[in-house]
Write a protein that binds this DNA or RNA. Structure first.
Lengths: 229, 229, 229, 229
DNA sequence: ACACACGGGACCTCCCGTTTGT
DNA sequence: ACAAACGGGAGGTCCCGTGTGT
C-alpha cells in the first residue's frame, strides 16, 4: 500500500556545475581568478567563487595550486604577459622613432581605460600590490620586478629618444619612467572612485605627454604657450 | 616569476589594555581600525583584531557601528580631518605666495613618506578606495569627495598662482590638481613594493615640481636645461 | 587657516528613536512584543527589535522586565485579558440561551480570522505554548491555565445547554470544550500555511457547530441529512 | 499569572561520537536536526548543537546544506516519508473497509502520542509550520503540500466510505479531512502544556470518531444516546 | 586530473544583559 | 523612569585546506 503523501522539495541548494573538458581547468582557474581579483582584490575573492565561476571543483584548484597565495605569482605572470603582448603589438605598429613609440604606448594605456578588459577598469598588478606588498615579502619583490619590467621598457624608449631628440631639459630616463608608472597606477586608482574616470585618465595622459614635450622641446611645443623673450 | 608561499601577518601589537575608561571606546576603535586597515586593507582586517588592539569588546564595536562597512565613512572622515590639519599647519607656516604654499604642501607629503604615521607608509584613502570603490556606490562617492577635497585645495592654489605668476604655458588648475593627486596616490602604491620607496617618492615629487616650474617659468628655471635659442 | 577638505558622511547608522512620553514605555513594550511574538514566535523576536518598534531603549525594557522570558507571563496575561473582554462583549449581546451564546462565541473566533488583530492571523497563546511548553515548566502551567480558562467558559455553557436542551447523545462538557479548543488552535496553525486560511477556519467552525447540533438535536437538525427510520 | 523565570534547555544528550564513517554525515544531520527541532523549534535549535549531536562539524553541515533554512525542506520530506510509511503499514494491516482503515489511521496517531518517537510528543510539521509559515513563502507552500498529503489520504478514505456506507448526513470529504487535520495538530499543540496530554489526545480522538459515526450512522450508533422519536 | 565529503576554525553579526549616569 | 555605553559570548556563514576515491 503506497500512501500518497506527495512532496516536492522547493529551495534545493543549487549544485549546478558545468564540467570542463580535461586539461582546461588550470587555464579557467587563472582566467577567472584574475578577473575576480582584479575587481575585488585578493582577500575578498574566495577560492570557492573562483571555482564556481571557472566551472571546476576545489579538488581541481588545489591540485593545480598548493594554496590560494600560490596562485598569485601565476596570476601576475599571466597578466604581465598579456600586457607585454599588447604593448608589443602597439610598438610594432608605431615604427622607429622612440617618441612616437612612446605615444603608441600611451595609446595602449588609454585604450585599456576606454574599453577595460572584461569591463573592469583596473590593473591586477596595482590591486594586488596594494593589498599584499606589505605582508608578503616574496610577492612584494615579484610586484617590484613587474613594475620594473614596464619602467625598463619606458626608460629604454626615453634613453633612445634623448639620443635622437636632445632634450631641452636633461632628465634621468629611469626616474621619469618610474614617475610615469606611478602616475598611471594612481590614475587607475583614483579613476575607480570618479564618475568621469575616463576623462581623468585622458587628462592625466595628456599632462604626461605635455611634461615629456616640455622636457624635450620646451614651451614652444605646447598649445597655450606664451613664447618667452 | 616563481615565488614560494606562506603568509605571515605581522603588525605592531599595541599594548592591549582591556576595559578603557568610559566614552573612549569609539575613539579607540577608530584609531586602531584606521591603523590596521591602512596596513592590511579592509577585507584583511578583522573586527576581532580591531577590538583586541583597541581594548574593547565586539559588543562595543557593534554598539557604535552597525557593521564593519559602516565604520569606513567614519574612518575616512577622521583620516581626511587629520590630513587637513597637517596641511593647514604647513600652509600656515608658508606665508602668502601660492607657489611657496604649494611647495609647503609637497613638503607635507614628503614628510608622510619619510616618517610615515605609525610606521606604515600608506594612505588610508588610497587603500580603501582601491578595495571598495567598485563594489559599494555610497563609499565610492565618499572617496571621490575626499579626493576632490584635496584637489580643490591644490587647484585653488594653482589658480591663485596663475594670477600672481602668469605661467609660460596655460593650463587648467583643476586638471593639474587631479594629475598631482593621481601621481601621489600611485607613488604610494608603487612605493610599497620597492625597497627604495622613499627615493621613489622624492623623485616623483621632484618631477611634479619640475612640471609646475616648466609650466610657470619655462625650461630656464630648471637645472640641466639648455637654454633655447 | 582652514583647509577645505570637505566631507559629509553617507551611510550614517540610523539611530532615530522617537522618545515616548514618560510612563508609557511599559505599555508600548507589551503591545509591540505581543504583536511581534505573535508573528515570529519568542526566540525569533529580539529584545532590540521590540525596543526599536516600541520606541524605547533597552534600558527601559530591562527596567520593567527582569529578562526576556519574564516578559512572557505579562504578555499572555494581557492577551487573555483582551480575548476575555472580546468574548464578554459577544456573550453579553447574545442573550440568555447557552446555545446561542456559544454561537456568539464562535462568531468572535470567526471574526478574529476574518480581520485578524494587526493583520496577523495567529494566537499568541498557541505560538508561545508550542515553542516554550516543553522547556519551561512554569510557563507551561501558565499556558495550561490560560487554555483552561477558555475551556471552562465553554464547558460551562455546554453544561447549561445540557440542562436547557437535553441532548440526543450524552457527552462530557469539559471534554468537548477541550476538543473545541484543540480544534481551534489547530485551525489557526494549519491556516497559516494555506492560501485559503479563512475558508479553512470557517469550514472548521461549521463542522464544530455541526458536531454540537448532532449531539444536541440529532441528524434531523442538519441540512443534507437523510432522516432515519 | 505571575511566573518566576529562568530557562533551562534539557534535551537528551545523545552519545556524541565524532567523525562518522564517510557518507553518513548528511543522514546524521537530518536525523538529529529533526529530533532537536521537533522539541525546540527552528529558531532555538542551533547549527552548533545539531552538529555536536550528529557528530559532524559545521564544515560538513554547510557542505550539505546551503543554510540553516535550506535544511528545512529536506527535514520535512524525511518526516512525511516516515509518517507515510507508518500509516501505510497501519492501513495495510487494516483490510479493505475504508471506515476500518480510518480507525487504523487514528490508531497510528494515538500510538504516536502514547509512545512518541524519541520521547518527544510533537509533530515536526506543526512545529515548523507555526514558526516559519508567515515568514518564508516557499516553506509555507511546502507545509501546505505536506498537510494536503495527509488530508488527501483521509479525504480519499472518507469518499470511499461514503460509497460503501451511505452516511446519514451528507458532508464534503475534503472539508472533514481538513477539520480532522486541524484537530490533530491542535491536539498536539495543546497537549504540550497539559500534564494529562495523552488523555487529552485520546479524548479528542474519541470525539473525532464520534463525529464520524454520527455523520455515517446517526445517534443510535453512540453509547449514551437517547433514541429519538 | 580531477570530484566530493568533510575538518576545523575565523569571521561578522547580533543578542541578552549590566553598568553607569541623568 | 529612563538613556546609552558597553561586556561577553553564541550563532550562522563561509573559508581554506585535506583526505579519499576514481
Amino acid at each position: 500500500v503506497r500512501v500518497p503523501l506527495h512532496f516536492d522539495i522547493p529551495m534545493s541548494p543549487v549544485t549546478s556545475r558545468r564540467h570542463l573538458p580535461r586539461g582546461e581547468a588550470r587555464a579557467a582557474i587563472i582566467a577567472h581568478a584574475s578577473r575576480l581579483m582584479r575587481g575585488r582584490g585578493f582577500a575578498s575573492t574566495s577560492v570557492d567563487e573562483i571555482c564556481l565561476q571557472a566551472g571546476v571543483t576545489k579538488g581541481a584548484f588545489f591540485h593545480h595550486f598548493a594554496s590560494k597565495e600560490a596562485l598569485v605569482p601565476t596570476l601576475i605572470e599571466a597578466w604581465v604577459g598579456d600586457r607585454a603582448a599588447q604593448y608589443g603589438r602597439a610598438l610594432e605598429a608605431a615604427g622607429e622613432d622612440p617618441l612616437i613609440r612612446l605615444e603608441a604606448l600611451f595609446g595602449s594605456l588609454r585604450e585599456n581605460v576606454r574599453e577595460p578588459p572584461e569591463g573592469i577598469p583596473a590593473c591586477l598588478l596595482g590591486m594586488l600590490a596594494q593589498e599584499l606588498s606589505l605582508h608578503h615579502e616574496p610577492l612584494r619583490d615579484a610586484f617590484a620586478r613587474c613594475f620594473a619590467g614596464w619602467t625598463d621598457l619606458v626608460a629604454g624608449l626615453l634613453a633612445e629618444a634623448k639620443v635622437r631628440h636632445p632634450p631641452v631639459v636633461d632628465f634621468d630616463p629611469a626616474e621619469v619612467a618610474w614617475m610615469l608608472n606611478s602616475l598611471w597606477q594612481g590614475t587607475l586608482l583614483v579613476a575607480k572612485s570618479r564618475e568621469e574616470g575616463r576623462r581623468l585618465a585622458e587628462g592625466n595622459l595628456e599632462h604626461a605627454r605635455a611634461y615629456l614635450r616640455l622636457l624635450f622641446h620646451g614651451p614652444a611645443a605646447l598649445p597655450g604657450s606664451r613664447a618667452e623673450t
